[in-house]
Write a protein that binds this DNA or RNA. Structure first.
Lengths: 214, 214, 214, 214
DNA sequence: AATGAATGAGTCTTCATTCAT
DNA sequence: CATGAATGAAGACTCATTCAT
């Protein structure tokens, strides 16, 4: 009976654990939609609650408050993104193909979650000069990690003698490439989006490959 | 006498006009500093007032409210910037040298007013998906004008057969170039800023010129 | 069979009754500790639950709510105290010794349960002017009964000609004596408690003796 | 003109200063009435605001929040009380008459402001065992100062050989006397208040006299 | 027109209570 | 009947805006 009780308890805990995770995810997704639509300060906790289909108070069982909800969202999405690009980095062996694979993934990701990426920038990356960054320090670290991954990719390409001998250091190339991608994303957002973003992104690769001006 | 009265009035009005402009400028500059430090919603009207050395109420004699103050700031800085690059565009005749001159100016501008540029992006460009864009529509138009100027520069370079025959349309090149500049700016902000930003920007030009990969 | 069923039921009820009482007591003791530490409004139901080792909801099977829990606690402790002093009253026959015995008991009680006595005062006696007395009316009645017992003790001493012929009525003497004890308790609480409270309380008796008793 | 301007400014500041003080007092008095009626946690800031005839927000221009409002009230009333008894202490020279004068004043004060005294006790003195005392530390210090003043009064009476040679130290006597006064106050509050409290208080003096004074 | 305190609508947050499991 | 998470009413607090001086 003791065993049965324990099993029962464990089962209940498992259910609870699952339910907890499910609630968290539901709230985070609701928060994502609202934050994307209204921005941080334009978002009311009660709005997120309504969107998630829970009571306002419930959100406080899962997140300390508005700030932490936002930070959690940004960090979670950031980690998910970083995990994915790290996976691609490890998967590819040829230095150049690796960079191209990364670019293609980033492009797809941007195409699907433009909104989230936008608030990601809003929250931290663009206001890293601000005294207090709502997104927390982690969000800046994450962007840095993202750029650093490209830096490493360029460095390994350089070691493999696959780069033209320019004055560009790997870090500069990473900054340039990620910047290009953002610029294209911005242009794509502003456009009617009739052409796929992926097509645009090939251009970035091409520019890097060839240079453009005669 | 009527004439004299009118003259007097005009004189008084001139003084008033000047005083008005002076106040406006003082408040705008204060607002710029605070908005850069704290972001839009983190900025209190009373903070701006203190920074400007005026009473809170005074600001409402010059701007309708917080939103309009912000929008005015963004638009004013935007127009100033657009005026300057338009001037450079007209001044330069060689298509390639024109692009390079534009890049050099943008770089200098970014180096001096990174903060303002950051909130410029935050306010409008990145959140153009938001239902309500605090910065107003003009801010998006301005960014578009900025990119468009580069687009025109590339188009005229293309017409002059000064571009490599790639699949890149002038608009794409503009997006790529401005994106690269932003990426470098971001990297430069995050760095210790020991090397000048201008040096970094030459890299952008070089990449465009040469392409990078062997 | 009916009889057996009834017997069975009674047995089950007895067990249930016991279990109920046990739970009640556990919760009351937990509540006592927390209320003493944090005061009424500083105490959360969930804190009491954790201290008692039960779920929050469980408490609502034993008490109607926070108010009733508090009132029950105060009243229960009050009745226990009143029972004990009533017992001492009946046990002692000599009017003066009776008063002294009562004082000694009150002193011991105060020394052990200062906290509870403090919230007892807070809850009811001191705020009887408030529109809503959390402790309920009974708490005030109880304090009145406590003072009344002393009043009766003094009255019987007066009848036995054991009091100095002052203008003090028994009720006044009761108020004065109980007040003195509280004053000493307060001083003792504030002190380092190196001397026992009992020793302090002898002073109260002495003052009454010298000043009042023949 | 500079002088006139300065004078003007000073005048305005004076008015403002006065107005500030007036507002503070109005709010404090409103708060006193409501806190006395409803207790600390039963009092809503909006209630106090309505009672004071100001907007809710206004109160936050004068007090940091509910806690600070309460603390300010308690401390202010405490200081006022301490100032008055200190004055009486200095005014009287005969040690015994001094004690009597103090008692008479305390009695009058209690009679007039029972409510405030009640919340004073509630707030701090009775719950000094609580982890966090809403009233702040000062409120406990104040009560200590009050008792200490009596202690000094008794000590100077002892030095003047005006006390019976009992085992009571001045501190004990102070505790006993102040306790007696509280006890009588409590009894008086509970009574129909047909007899004046002052009359009751004479009894305290009498008990001390007969019991303690030579 | 400048001032800066008053205003109160708008939010976040807490926590007693309920209820599905 | 125990559980503990969901609930949402209640209330503290902020700050853009107004307005009397």
């Amino acid at each position: 009976m003791a065993a049965r009780q324990k099993a029962k308890k464990t089962a209940r805990e498992a259910v609870r654990e699952q339910s907890r995770a499910a609630y968290q995810e539901i709230i985070l997704e609701a928060a994502e939609r609202i934050f994307v639509r209204r921005g941080f300060s334009g978002t009311r906790m009660s709005d997120v609650a309504r969107e998630a289909g829970v009571a306002t108070g419930t959100m406080y069982n899962y997140f300390e408050g508005k700030d932490e909800l936002f930070r959690s969202l940004m960090q979670l999405r950031g980690e998910q993104f970083l995990d994915q690009i790290a996976h691609i980095y490890r998967r590819e062996n040829d230095p150049i193909e690796r960079i191209e694979a990364l670019v293609r993934f980033v492009v797809e990701y941007l195409e699907e979650r433009v909104g989230t990426c936008a608030i990601f920038f809003e929250a931290g990356v663009m206001s890293e000069m601000s005294i207090d960054c709502i997104g927390g320090d982690r969000i800046i670290e994450q962007y840095t990690e993202y750029v650093d991954l490209f830096e490493r990719a360029f460095r390994s390409a350089a070691r493999a003698k696959r780069l033209k001998p320019t004055g560009c250091k790997p870090g500069d190339l990473a900054a340039i490439l990620t910047g290009m991608l953002n610029g294209l994303a911005r242009a794509w957002i502003a456009s009617d989006r009739s052409t796929s973003f992926a097509a645009k992104a090939d251009l970035a690769i091409q520019v890097l490959r060839e240079g453009v001006v005669l």
